Structures are given as C-alpha cells and as structure tokens.
Lab assay of single mutants.
Amino acid sequence: MATGGRRGAAAAPLLVAVAALLLGAAGHLYPGEVCPGMDIRNNLTRLHELENCSVIEGHLQILLMFKTRPEDFRDLSFPKLIMITDYLLLFRVYGLESLKDLFPNLTVIRGSRLFFNYALVIFEMVHLKELGLYNLMNITRGSVRIEKNNELCYLATIDWSRILDSVEDNYIVLNKDDNEECGDICPGTAKGKTNCPATVINGQFVERCWTHSHCQKVCPTICKSHGCTAEGLCCHSECLGNCSQPDDPTKCVACRNFYLDGRCVETCPPPYYHFQDWRCVNFSFCQDLHHKCKNSRRQGCHQYVIHNNKCIPECPSGYTMNSSNLLCTPCLGPCPKVCHLLEGEKTIDSVTSAQELRGCTVINGSLIINIRGGNNLAAELEANLGLIEEISGYLKIRRSYALVSLSFFRKLRLIRGETLEIGNYSFYALDNQNLRQLWDWSKHNLTITQGKLFFHYNPKLCLSEIHKMEEVSGTKGRQERNDIALKTNGDQASCENELLKFSYIRTSFDKI
C-alpha cells in the first residue's frame, strides 16, 4: 500500500482533458527560462521544448504516446526543470519506465491550478516501474492521483506527508504495488545497510526511497516546507523545498512566496507586481503582455491589467481597466465587458449561442446573426445582446428569417469595421425574408467608422429604411451602385405612401 494514499474509496472516473512563447529569463536562482504550460502528445517531438525550461508557468501534460519505446527515452533528460506552477499529468506514455532521468531536479509542483483537485496525476502508464522524482520536495496545493499503472512499484516507500501538507485526498490505487509483488529495495538494503531515512506512518517504520538508488530526502521537522541542505541544516524561511546553503534567500532552489532578481522575498516591493503567484514583474512586463494579447485571437491570451499590486489576466467583477495605466478602477454604474472572439468572429444561430455573449459591452471581433427560429426570440436576444455598444469588426445579418427588427441591439452605437466582410463591408444584410426595420432612427444613433453597407434580398425592408441608415451611420456616399439592390429590397412591402385627393359631386333626387 502506498504510504499516505487512500484505498478502496469510491472515486469519480478520471477524465483526461485534452506555445513556446518565453516569458522571460528567471535569473540567477533558476538555471534556465520560464516556459508556458505545455500539452505534449502523440510523439516526442515537442518534448524537446523543455530543454531550457527551469519553470513551467502553467501545467505540463505528457500523454497518448503509443509508439514510443524505452530506448526512445534513454537520452532524454531535462535537468534544468525545477518547478511547475500548476500540475504534472502523465497518461498512456508507452515505453517510459521512470522519471528519474527525465526530470531529475523537479523540486516543486505548486498546484496553482489543479487537474480535478490533483497536482500530480500518473494514470495508465503501462510501462512505468517507478516514479523516480527523487528531488520532489513540495506539492504546495492539491493532491496526488496514481492509478492503474500495472508495473509501478516504489510507492509504499514514499512518505507523501513530507511532500504535501495533507495526504487525506491522495488516491493511489490499482498499481502493481497493490499486489505486494514489488519487493522494493532501498539503497544499501541488499548489503544489509540502512542508507535512507525511515519514518513512521500508520504504525509502520519504513525506509523512504524513490528507487533502488535514490533515497527520499527527509528534512528535520523544524525546517517545515522550506527544505534543508545535504547536511540537514534548514533553508531560509522564504525558500521552498530545498537550498544549497542554509538561511540564505539567494540560495533557495525555489521560493515559498515570490522570486525577485535572484532572491526569494515575502512580497513584491514597489515598483514590482505579483505575477502568477510566484514571481515579481515590473510595469513594462505587464504592459507588454497586455499589448501582445490586445489584437491576438490565441486562446488563453489575456490583456493583463494591474489590481491590488498584482498583474492579473482581467479586472475583477465591479472594476474596469483604465487604459492609460492598466489599473483596475471601480465602475460607475454597470461595468464594461470586452469579449474577445477566439477566431475573430462568432455566429449567433440560437439563443444558446447568444447567451455566451451575455453582459458583453464591447465585441472584439465580428458578429454573424443567422437565426431561423426560436421561442420568445426578441426578448431572449435583447437579454443577451442588448448591452453590446461596440463591435470592432463587422455585423452580418444573414438568412435570419425569424427577425423582424434589429432593435434587440438596443445599445449598439459603434461598428468600427477594423475587419470587413469580403474585404469591403462593415454591415452586411443578406436574404432576411421578414426583416422590416433596422432601428427606430428617431431614437437610435449608430456610427460606422469604416467599410460599406450591403443589402440584398431583404424583400420587406424598404429602401427608405436603408437610406436612413446611410445618413445616420455616416456611410452615405461610400456605397457603390450594386451594394444596395434596388429590386430585391422592399419588393414585397408597401414602401411608397402617396396622399390621394378626392373630389365629389353631391346629387339628390331633384338636383344634379
């Protein structure tokens, strides 16, 4: 039985969820670079991206490699990797027998973001014989899940209580170790020597080791999670996991709180800001991140802002960003909400898709409305799209047979046209069989910064309504002859009103 693990408890099935942008060198404390989270699957090609990484700022997932063999891993080693800020997950990587050479110096898994409450997941690794993470000293947050690894031993010899604050939620089941077939031998045991430290858990006094050649490092209890030197002297209180010299914040392997210019500090002093819960960055760093993602459509890219001495992905609820200094300031009234469309555009074809934009005031991208039916549609669209004030790209209304009016965009005031449909149009209306009105132009103002209007096959939309939009939106004169079809717009509506004058002759039985 794995020490510190839980057996036999019912657990939810383990679901495996399925960018080499360097964020800056980590400095003297770390020998390499800070790398983003990685999802490495199918083959070993991307694994080489770990070569210079000291910190993975995010998670590391290595999974679904069915053609790899043990010899493929023999020359692979990433000794610079010290810390993973989120979680480490391995799933069905064939041929991998140990992690001792792959990650010989991995010391800390912070667990800032977890995989279903777990910071370390080893699942269905069919050839893994031992973990071998002999320098792993601290899992700051989260638990361990090690399950269905039929060859995995050296679990009962690990004292997880020396690595985690609590072992109650560890789930370590259905491994070879369960069948008591392992016969784990710690260093020196074969020669009758006791080389590794022994600890007591559940009444068992057991030597602690990761492999037959690597003991588990056990520091004096007084050192807590700070770690200790090879001689057993406690590291500085700002260290986490390990250090090369005692009581020196510049000799830590990793930091308990924050890293700044080669030393570990309790908090980031001005003019620095907390970033990702582990390091200090200056304003320029946060500003660069903001600008890199301002026009990016890459998933996970955030326009970072500053709030409460932190550089964070977005302002919290009730705050909006001051564009001059990136500071989050309290909103006066309802907060603006910028919604970034991942692929640059979004099609609204149902109430469900409209709900995804609920509360958005600025759309960074283009909207395509293609709704053919739905219950209580006008009210639903207004509830979900009615706060949109600005669209950076274009607005396209296409084959939306259920629409009679666009009044559900009740606050839309600006279409920038930074991206144009077919390279020309910022407003595009095609084949809307029941569209009769755009907006009530006596109450609604709309500016279209650039781009043209396109109207074709809107049989109940009168040309007068379209011409009014040209005047109000500032697009009059931009359109070419064929942009607004004269014969297919309003051709099934009563669009022309003329005053009919009647004269009559009164007659009676005795007068003409």
Rank of each mutant, 00 (worst) to 15 (best):
E207V: 06
I158Y: 06
L50M: 13
S77W: 07
R145G: 02
S166I: 06
T194I: 15
C293G: 06
K251W: 05
C243Y: 00
T211S: 08
L240T: 06
Q245F: 11
K100E: 12
V265A: 09
T229W: 06
A254D: 08
M65K: 04
K310W: 14
E231T: 09
T107K: 08
R92H: 14
R113Y: 14
I146P: 00
K129M: 11
E314M: 06
S77T: 15
T320E: 12
P70D: 15
S284R: 08
R92A: 07
L99H: 00
F258S: 05
R263K: 06
R92T: 02
P336D: 13
I312L: 07
L128E: 01
R263N: 04
F103W: 04
I84P: 00
L240G: 13
I56P: 00
G183A: 11
P269V: 09
R162I: 12
K80E: 02
P334N: 05
R256P: 02
P316W: 02
P334T: 14
L174S: 13
A190H: 09
K224E: 10
L326C: 03
W278Q: 03
L131K: 00
N179L: 07
M38N: 09
H236M: 02
L47P: 03
K193I: 11
Q204T: 14
C268G: 00
L76C: 15
V281K: 02
F205A: 02
Y154P: 04
V167C: 12
G262A: 04
K217E: 09
L289S: 10
G333W: 15
G192H: 07
G262Q: 08
D288G: 10
I109M: 01
D169L: 07
I56S: 01
D72G: 15
T140C: 10
L131M: 05
S244Q: 15
T320M: 12
V281P: 00
F258M: 07
Y273A: 04
I201K: 05
E207Q: 06
N195R: 08
H59D: 05
N117F: 10
L155T: 11
P70C: 12
C315K: 00
T189P: 09
R298V: 06
K191C: 05
G111I: 00
E49F: 03
R145D: 02
R110S: 10
Y259S: 03
A156S: 07
C335L: 04
Q303V: 08
A156I: 13
L131N: 02
R113T: 15
K80F: 05
H302M: 04
N52R: 10
F275N: 02
C182G: 02
T199N: 06
P220Y: 05
D247Y: 12
C264D: 00
N135W: 06
Q61M: 12
C209V: 01
S317P: 06
L99P: 01
L133K: 00
D288P: 02
L90I: 08
P271Q: 03
D159W: 14
H307P: 01
G333K: 09
T140S: 09
N322K: 06
Y319C: 15
L64M: 11
N170F: 11
T329S: 04
H28Y: 03
T250V: 06
G32R: 08
N170W: 06
K193S: 13
Y134G: 15
I82V: 13
W160P: 00
N242S: 12
T189S: 08
H302N: 14
N117L: 05
L29W: 08
Y134E: 08
C186Q: 02
